[in-house]
């Protein structure tokens, strides 16, 4: 502790007196304080030399500093890479496992699938959400639904984990031929009314449309029961979910101009992500599990077209 006793009053003042009686004593600052000040000044120079502290670079070179003891020369990129290693170290055990597993095995592993649900969000946002919407809610343009909703259990090409994986790897593109030339407008009108009624569960109320459906080429792709054939990606017309537009006008347009078949037809193309080369095998597997876990994934042993009916009462 410094001596703060000035009981003799013998310390000279600076000579200036304010307000009649206030003066500054010319006491030296305490030694510890002066040492601290000097030490800090020295440290500033050392610190300045250790880091790349000159904020200019000429022709790509800059003052790199003399470096830190033990760890070498510091740059922001190096520090970021060190931080990245910490993150990678946490993820590595999971990523190593995923590398050698099938999507179905990843899904079956509770811990891994939970990891995918958390880490897949960025992947999905970067690669899928542009068409399918954030969290797979689908996107809508003025002609109807642009890309399918991934949260529901209606799948054009199958909703098992392997089918979803296959879809991402290879892409999908189905075709529906236009019928504006092969069917008369009133026939199109009748069959549109029929499939709309089908979706509402009262297909028998439209016998005219049913006749057109059965006698023209509709059954070739959608099947005689109108439930669609997943191998070719034809839609199930009996459920409540519409790929493009469930209004009568929308249905008529789909029938008249088809899908992926020339001018005015609807466009439905899922790109090939394997070929695009942007995603690694692990990332595609993670995306498949991520999409499955939205809630619409179909278990392998459950037939795709038979979702559980509402139980009488859960209460």
């Amino acid at each position: 502790m410094s001596d703060n006793q000035n009981s003799d009053g013998g310390v000279p003042t600076t000579g200036h007196i304010w307000d009649d009686n206030l003066a500054d004593l010319t006491n030296q600052p305490p030694r510890w304080w002066m040492l601290g000040l000097t030490g800090s000044a020295v440290w500033v120079v050392v610190y300045w030399l250790m880091y790349p502290s000159v904020p200019f670079s000429t022709s790509g070179t800059f003052f790199e500093g003399i470096g830190l003891p033990g760890t070498g020369k510091w740059t922001a990129i190096k520090e970021m890479q060190e931080d990245q290693k910490v993150v990678d170290a946490v993820r590595m055990p999971f990523e190593n496992k995923i590398k050698d597993m099938t999507p179905a095995a990843i899904l079956a592993d509770k811990e891994l699938s939970e990891y995918v649900v958390r880490s897949g969000k960025v992947l999905f946002g970067d690669n899928c959400a542009a068409c399918h919407g954030q969290n797979g809610v689908g996107t809508v343009d003025k002609q109807g639904l642009f890309a399918p909703i991934l949260n529901d259990d209606d799948w054009l090409f199958g909703g098992t984990i392997d089918k979803i994986h296959e879809t991402i790897v290879g892409g999908r593109q189905a075709i529906m031929t236009p019928h504006k030339d092969s069917l008369k407008p009133e026939q199109i009108d009748a069959v549109a009314k029929y499939v709309k009624a089908l979706s509402e569960g009262k297909g028998d109320s439209e016998p005219d449309g049913k006749k057109v459906f059965m006698e023209s080429d509709c059954t070739a792709c959608h099947g005689p029961d109108a439930k669609g054939i997943q191998a070719m990606g034809s839609a199930n017309l009996t459920d409540k979910i519409w790929r493009f537009d469930g209004s009568l006008e929308g249905i008529k347009r789909t029938i008249a101009y088809g899908v992926n078949a020339g001018p005015d037809s609807r466009i439905a193309v899922m790109p090939n992500f394997k070929e695009a080369g942007k995603l690694s095998d692990s990332e595609i597997k993670k995306l498949a599990v991520y999409v499955y876990k939205f809630g619409g994934g179909i278990k392998d042993d459950v037939p795709a077209a038979a979702p559980a009916a509402a139980a009488p009462s859960a209460n």
């Binding site: 909703i149 949260n151 259990d153 209606d154 199930n236 939205f294 809630g295 009916a309 509402a310």
Partner: peptide, 18 residues
Amino acid sequence: PERQPLFVRMSDGSIQNK
């Protein structure tokens, strides 16, 4: 509860929440 989407319409017409 999931906030986006708040609910999903399933193929059998039921409403699913996550």
